[in-house]
Design a protein around this nucleic acid. Sequence first.
DNA 1: CGCCAGGGGAGCT
DNA 2: AGCTCCCCTGGC
Length: 275
Amino acid sequence: MVRIKIQNFNLPQICQSGQCFRMSERSENRYSVIARNRYLELEQSKEECIFYCDEAEFQEFWKKYFDLDTDYSSYIERIAQGDTYLQNAAEFGSGIRILRQDLWEMIVSFLISQQNNIVRIRRCIENICERYGEKMVNDRGEAYSAFPTPETLFDLPEDALMECNLGYRSKYVVRAAKSVVSGDCDLEKIGKLTYKDAKEELLKLFGVGEKVADCICLFALHELAAFPVDTHISQALQKHYKRGFPKRRYQGYQGVLQQYIFYYELFGGRKNSDR
DNA sequence: CGCCAGGGGAGCT
DNA sequence: AGCTCCCCTGGC
């Protein structure tokens, strides 16, 4: 196991921030994450966090996954002094990190996310993993399911995933798998493109629009300039930024601020000073 | 039963 | 850019 001391890192916040649907609280202060086919447990006390894996796996995978080399306080410090709403939001979610997750996994996850709520998105994803993901065993000897590969899904009837509760999103996922397997959608290539070009490629997928493409860019490609606007963000911007969100001021890391706002809107008890 | 909302998107003008 | 219609599930 690996022990680290780190600022701006908070497991409950990362877990609830709605970017990783396969992270959950196992027991008090103890979290598990499944990324593609890897399983990890973590535990956090005050300023120290324990990763239950060996040093090598931490260095080559999880360190990057949790973006541990980035100092998030510098993002927060650059928030305009006069913007008390954003100051409050950033303070409230200051332990959130923008994870570097798997591209295919994010495509599927955010196809499922549309017109859907977080609790149900989690259930949908667990359903397809249990049904179509490779069966794995963790260090405790417990079974878990990897994320299903495109090759496992591309040949299914388009409505097959309705039994996993995806509803009308079933065909989006099956068609996306088809695009990946056929090579129409080249994941490796997309990973190397600029934000603008990657987004353009993702928009070609049936069921992927502006918002979903931005989520994929932000959470898989780590394009921090992506600023996904969903119903919550849209309402928040109308309330607090009547003349528009100052994207230019925060050019290059708007996505981080989007997460603070999103998390604050969903879980922060509204303060009077915000209205 | 109807109504509505949930981290939208497609297709059209 | 804006509009309409569409899709499925769960909660009230």
